[in-house]
Simulated assay, not measured.
Amino acid sequence: MARRICLDCGTLTDGTRCTTCRRPRERAMLQAKRQRRPRPTHAEDKRRAAAVAAHRREHGDWCPGWRRDPHEASDLTADHVDAVAAGGAESGDLQVLCRSCNSAKGAR
């Protein structure tokens, strides 16, 4: 691979930025991501746990599926129907999905 000049400091590197310049940039991007997606409050965590417990009492370890057929799953999670990051209310409706379906929903 050809060596290039770092976009920030001008030293030779194998990528677009040297390791000295890349680390603060990665740290800043991670902090910005945390600010966009704050950690749910303790009350919200309890509300989600209660939603999963109620779903398990009624349906067992069963995921209703998101854009796929319902299936058995032991890793159920509760998440907002309308994402808070997209403008949904923090107290909005929750839906219970397995982690795989929840990730697929979040990646759409």
Rank of each mutant, 00 (worst) to 15 (best):
R4F: 14
I5D: 02
L7N: 13
C9P: 05
C9Q: 01
C9I: 06
G10H: 07
L12F: 09
L12T: 07
G15E: 05
G15F: 01
G15K: 13
R17M: 14
T20C: 02
C21W: 00
P24D: 08
P24I: 01
R27C: 00
A28Y: 02
M29P: 00
K33S: 04
R34E: 09
R36W: 00
R37A: 14
P38M: 07
P40T: 15
P40H: 07
K46W: 12
A51S: 08
A51N: 05
V52P: 09
A54W: 01
R56D: 03
G60Q: 04
W62S: 10
G65H: 00
G65C: 10
G65K: 01
R67E: 15
R68H: 12
P70E: 03
P70Q: 12
E72V: 13
S74H: 09
S74T: 12
T77Y: 03
D79C: 11
H80T: 03
H80F: 03
H80G: 15
D82L: 02
A83D: 14
A85G: 14
A85F: 05
G88H: 05
A89L: 07
S91G: 06
V96T: 08
L97F: 05
C98I: 08
R99L: 15
N102H: 15
N102P: 05
N102Y: 07
S103P: 00
S103T: 08
